[in-house]
């Protein structure tokens, strides 16, 4: 009888162990996916990036939320981090033989992450790269020239995270025959006092993205003062255009996803990543009402897109 009980207990233990192993196996098999995608947030915007990426790549990926990426760390060959938080999170845990491609994040955020994590000491350039969400400065300045062919002064406002762009802003402005005007705004400054002289002197005003707080506080005043001075303002998002910017230059999640899919295919073929880049695919949207108010005749959107793509 004792033998029967022992056998029953042994069998029970055996099945329990088997079940645990089975679960672990499934977990390990899942983590063996060659490419893991880690999302900063499980929201529609990020899923749109994933969806466009999958449509433009032949390679399957496993998608994880930032909170459950531990499952993927052991054996993934390539991580695609969508968003700044995902990028920073994966970079903190990744091993030197693995690769990380950060996408859908601002270039400033990527630079900050590299500085804070000292990632370049652990990962070579071939194993770490990025696709930025923001647009290259020259493309934005080129757009300013396209909407105002005769303009002389190009203005912008620089915040705590964008002030280092000033030499580039000046150089590209001159390249496109503008006289650059800029000011730096800190948190203790009165934004109207800083913005007004810049916008009053400008023929076109370029709004550059900075951190979220800066954007939220400065954007509204930029729009008001630009509209009051009848100066066309170039925004960096579709909602900026909805709020009153004459034109906006930006990449949609779908466009970023498409290029990310292409990078994935490139990696699978060449086993290394291309250098960090700004988006190749981008959109323009126009606020016709604001253009009418400012009495600006804008070229057709397709014409401007072609011109910007040609100069890439």
């Amino acid at each position: 009888m004792n033998g029967y009980v022992r056998l029953k207990v042994s069998l029970k233990s055996f099945f329990m162990t088997l079940c645990i192993l089975l679960v672990l196996c499934l977990s390990i098999i899942k983590s063996y996916a060659a490419v893991s995608v880690v999302l900063s947030e499980h929201t529609q915007t990020y899923l749109n990036v994933v969806s466009a990426m999958e449509q433009n790549s032949d390679h399957p990926v496993q998608v994880y939320a930032i909170s459950d990426q531990t499952q993927s760390l052991a054996s993934s060959q390539l991580f695609i981090a969508i968003g700044a938080r995902a990028c920073q999170s994966v970079l903190a845990a990744i091993q030197s033989h693995q690769s990380l491609f950060c996408t859908f994040l601002p270039s400033q955020a990527y630079e900050l992450i590299l500085q804070t994590t000292q990632a370049s000491l652990r990962l070579s350039q071939e194993h770490l790269s990025a696709l930025f969400l923001d647009q290259p400065l020259e493309r934005q300045i080129h757009l300013a020239r396209l909407i105002q062919p005769d303009a002389e002064f190009l203005g912008t406002l620089l915040g705590p995270n964008s002030h280092h762009l000033k030499p580039h802003f000046d150089a590209y402005s001159r390249k496109h025959h503008f006289t650059p005007i800029s000011a730096r705004l800190s948190e203790s400054d009165n934004p109207v006092q800083e913005l007004t002289p810049i916008i009053e002197q400008s023929d076109v005003f370029l709004s550059l993205p900075d951190n979220a707080l800066f954007n939220r506080s400065a954007t509204r005043w930029s729009l008001y003062i630009a509209l009051r001075n009848k100066v066309p303002l170039i925004g960096f998002s579709a909602s900026y255009v909805d709020a009153g910017a004459v034109i906006g230059l930006y990449s949609t999640p779908t466009q970023i996803g498409r290029q990310t899919g292409e990078v994935l295919d490139y990696f699978m073929k060449h086993k290394h990543l291309p250098p960090p880049s700004f988006p190749n695919y981008f959109s323009l949207s126009v606020n016709r009402s604001a253009a009418r108010t400012l009495q600006i005749n804008l070229p057709e959107i397709d014409e401007m897109l072609d011109a910007l793509k040609t100069s890439k």
């Binding site: 915007t45 700044a84 994040l105 909602s239």
Partner: peptide
């Protein structure tokens, strides 16, 4: 991460006015 997310991330560009 929270510090970065609040200060500088793609939400800065996606923020709805």
């Amino acid at each position: 991460l929270k510090a970065l997310a609040e200060d500088l991330s793609e939400t800065a560009l996606l923020t709805h006015i």
